[in-house]
Computed example of a mutant assay.
Amino acid sequence: MSSTLAGAFGIAALFVAVLALVFAIQALRGQTGTPKTPAAPPVVPQPEPEQAPQPEPKPGTVKSELRRLSKELEAARGEMRETLQHLAVVRYDAYGDMGGRLSWSMALLDDKGDGVVLTSINSRNDARSYAKEVKAFESDTKLSPEEEEAIETLRKEATPLPTNPEQP
């Protein structure tokens, strides 16, 4: 097989993998009901009864701007927890007759362990790509050892979500 043909197969495999990623993300958004519009800022907890409520600062003051920015920061933090921001890639030789670790599995997950695992298996004659949904670091679909390794890498790196986040 010529290097030009092998390069064309590689580009085609990469294109299919990117398409699978786009479709998987769209499917995840559709299943989880993620709104396409920005989320409303979180509700600010009411002060405890012992504390006297603080008066609302005048608009345009430093204090009012700090409160507004604090609310925006909390909303951004909430949105970040749902983005596919954690990535792990495992490269391997899928077949004994090929070297170079051209096959790969890639896990893309959010803070809760939800996301997708993409796999591209390359042989001398073709390349196949797969996308599998992941929820809470688990998948309903049978995973290959390499896919499990990619997910396990992210599970070990995951930081538990705070149960009582500090208020700014």
Rank of each mutant, 00 (worst) to 15 (best):
V134M: 04
V134N: 03
V134T: 01
K135P: 08
A136N: 15
A136C: 04
F137W: 08
F137M: 09
F137D: 00
E138Y: 06
E138M: 06
S139C: 10
S139V: 06
S139I: 08
D140T: 11
D140S: 10
T141D: 15
T141P: 03
K142C: 02
K142R: 10
K142I: 03
K142S: 04
L143N: 09
L143F: 12
L143R: 03
L143D: 03
S144D: 09
P145M: 11
P145A: 10
P145H: 10
E146Q: 15
E148D: 13
E149R: 14
E149N: 12
E149Y: 03
A150T: 08
A150V: 10
I151D: 04
E152Y: 00
T153E: 15
T153V: 15
T153W: 13
T153L: 15
T153Y: 13
T153I: 15
L154N: 05
L154I: 11
L154T: 03
K156W: 00
K156C: 01
K156G: 02
K156N: 05
K156I: 06
E157N: 07
T159R: 13
T159E: 10
T159H: 07
P160F: 06
P160S: 14
P162L: 11
P162N: 04
P162A: 05
P162T: 06
P162R: 09
P162G: 07
T163A: 13
N164D: 12
P165A: 07
